Amino acid sequence: MNLRQVEIFRVVMTNGTTARAAEVLHVSQPAVSKMIQELERSLGFDLFQRIKGRLHPTQEGQLFFREVEQAFLGLTHLRGAAARIRDYGSGEIRIACLSALSTNVLPRALQAFMKSNPNVAVTFQARMSSNVRDLVASGQFDLGIVADEIDRTGVEIEEFAEFRVAVALPKGHPLEALKVIRPADLAGQPFIALAPEDTTRREAEIAFHRAGVTIRPVMETPYSTTICAMVAAGVGIGLVNPLTAEPYEGQGLTLRPFEPALHFRTLLITPPNRLPSRILEDFIRDLRGAI
């Protein structure tokens, strides 16, 4: 079995006939038929049934075609990688980040990094922290910025930053009159909660419990950006990362400090047993500078 035989098989499967495959490949129809027969001999099973001069894929042929498609997806990725190396020369970095920092810290860090590294290709995705962890652990991404509630197995971890929790209020809300907001002030207020697995949510629940306060959740979301948007729309009140809330301040949202002090804690994660490249170290330096 060789790659040319497999390529011809794929074209026949895709186009339905050896005649059409021959046109696409710019070869003769007998040459296509011969290649298919040679591939079948090397595989040890029939890829097609020949009925009244037409080819009909066997079940084995269909199963083999699925595997061929997966292999060609890999080749497509290699072609893309080669194009990036050709066009950018210096390499690439792949970064995944929790949503809370994707609209503020990351743009500032990337602006600084790309200014000094204009020939580096950057892939960036904003995902939930658990998804970011999986992308990095599998080696698909070079760096992840995540909240501290992730599963820490299978990745290298470095403390990144912590941000003091603020209370996000709809503009004009009566609690704007307070300089500091405490758990008792939020009793009975419509509350937009973080996801149950969020460490900051669990710490907030402890603070509410100690104060004997019952909150009234009207919505739950893993994204601080969603909380900010909902607060600005007047849906309720929420605890947010003040950096995430930056674009919303003065646009329907007001921030107030929350006591007792709670924090959002973030981590940098990298794939296991892999030394960071020079360009990744440069980006991490710019990322820390963006804080």
Rank of each mutant, 00 (worst) to 15 (best):
D148S: 14
A207L: 10
S224L: 11
L169T: 07
Q251T: 04
N241E: 11
E205G: 01
V167Q: 07
V180K: 08
A177P: 00
V180P: 03
T226H: 09
R216H: 15
G250L: 05
E246C: 03
Q140V: 08
A207C: 11
V180Y: 05
I215L: 15
I206Y: 05
E149I: 00
A168D: 00
I145V: 15
L169D: 03
V136A: 04
I157F: 08
G188A: 02
K179M: 06
T221L: 10
A177E: 15
R216C: 09
I237S: 06
E197R: 10
L243W: 06
T200I: 06
L186T: 02
E156L: 04
H209D: 13
G250K: 08
I150R: 11
A204K: 05
V165G: 03
T199R: 14
E156V: 14
Y248D: 04
A207W: 07
G144M: 08
T226Y: 03
V231W: 13
I150A: 07
A245L: 11
G238D: 06
T200H: 08
T225H: 12
R201S: 03
F141M: 14
L135K: 02
T200D: 05
T221D: 08
A232Q: 09
D198N: 15
R201I: 01
A207R: 12
A161G: 00
A232S: 15
D185L: 03
R182G: 02
R216N: 14
I206N: 10
A207H: 08
D142T: 04
A187Q: 14
M230V: 00
G234C: 11
E176T: 12
D148K: 03
F208V: 11
A187R: 14
G154Q: 10
K171E: 15
Q189A: 13
E203Y: 12
E159L: 07
G212I: 10
M230C: 12
G212P: 09
L175E: 07
V180A: 02
F208T: 09
D151G: 00
E158Y: 02
R202I: 13
R201T: 03
G154P: 00
E149K: 02
V155K: 00
I215P: 02
A161K: 10
L194E: 10
V155Q: 00
G188E: 01
I237R: 10
S224M: 06
R202S: 07
D198V: 13
T199H: 13
L143E: 02
C228R: 06
G172N: 05
V235W: 05
A232P: 11
I215N: 02
A177R: 15
I150C: 10
A233C: 04
L175W: 05
I237A: 09
V231Y: 13
R202F: 03
Y223R: 14
V240M: 09
G154I: 00
G172Y: 09
A147V: 05
T225C: 02
P217N: 11
C228N: 13
T214Y: 03
G252T: 11
C228S: 11
F141Y: 15
R182P: 00
P247T: 03
F160S: 07
T200Q: 11
L239V: 02
R201Y: 14
A193L: 04
P247W: 06
A187I: 01
E158M: 10
E220K: 12
A184C: 01
H209M: 13
T244L: 07
L175I: 11
Q251G: 03
L194P: 01
V167S: 05
G139P: 11
D198A: 12
